[in-house]
Amino acid sequence: MSPRLPVARRLTRQVRPVPAEAAGSPSRTVPVISVRGVRKSYGVGEAAVHALRGPDDPAGGGPLGVSVDVEQGDFVAVMGSSGSGKSTLMNILGCLDVPTSGRYLLDGIDVGHLDEHQLSLVRNRKIGFIFQSFNLVPRTTALAQVELPLAYAGVRAAERRRRAVAALSMVGLGDRLDHRPNELSGGQQQRVAVARALVTSPAMLLADEPTGNLDSRSTDEVLAMVDRLNAAGRTVVLITHEDEVARHAKRVLRLVDGRIVSDVRQGPVAGPPPVFAGAEPVVGAVASGGGR
């Protein structure tokens, strides 16, 4: 995929963050997300804009790309102002976009080598999306909405319905099965989206500013739901620019201009999320290598 791949890998090994709290975590397991030297640039040559660049090569070369690992069961918040590259990172993590260079292993699978059909399978099986703008399919009932990823996965109708009803009941919408998006409030829509994201039991939940369009009560509801999912062992990557939201995460990555400038652990990978544990964020835990 990239000619500089071996170099990138070696460098990222060196700077790989090993937080003290995570030392006891099962490091033998394959990380859910393993990003190695991923760059994303738009345009070519002098006019190229690097949405994701990572640290510059100390030898004076170009950008080395972003490298980051996310362990199974972790809850990572990616923070940054607009234009920091967090959405680009999210799109790459979600297999919606391909990096210009670098390697991305999702659940041990090198996504870069997959064709379009396989990518759609990966999106279907491994990733559950929650978007800022809900992104529900218009004119479709909540039930059909949640059944959709199962339908794409080829699950039989009866089984599909059973699982979709269970997922909707879990998010507290068991009585809204036949409502269409325009008949639901923002909070309810987002809960349908959460149900849709988790109905396939994906390896990771990707949430892009899930509370950006919600009032505070709905925000709390949705975040509580995400907390519960993480407590149940689901890996969560959440993109936000609000500290309030980031407080829920076990680990906070900050992006500035396409570089990870800080990587803070707020709670252990194993165990409940910080809000459940009642633990205050561990201030200034470990500085990330990405921000050198």
């Binding site: 979600g94 919606l96 379009e116 059909h117 759609s120 399978l121 999106r123 279907n124 099986r125 999306f129 978007f131 992104n135 529900l136 399919v137 218009p138 959709l148 990823p149 794409y152 996965a153 849709r196 396939t200």
Partner: peptide, 16 residues
Amino acid sequence: TREIGIRKAIGAPKGV
């Protein structure tokens, strides 16, 4: 287009 994007994001293969 947006709806197509959503469907693809939740794993709709090209054929569907």
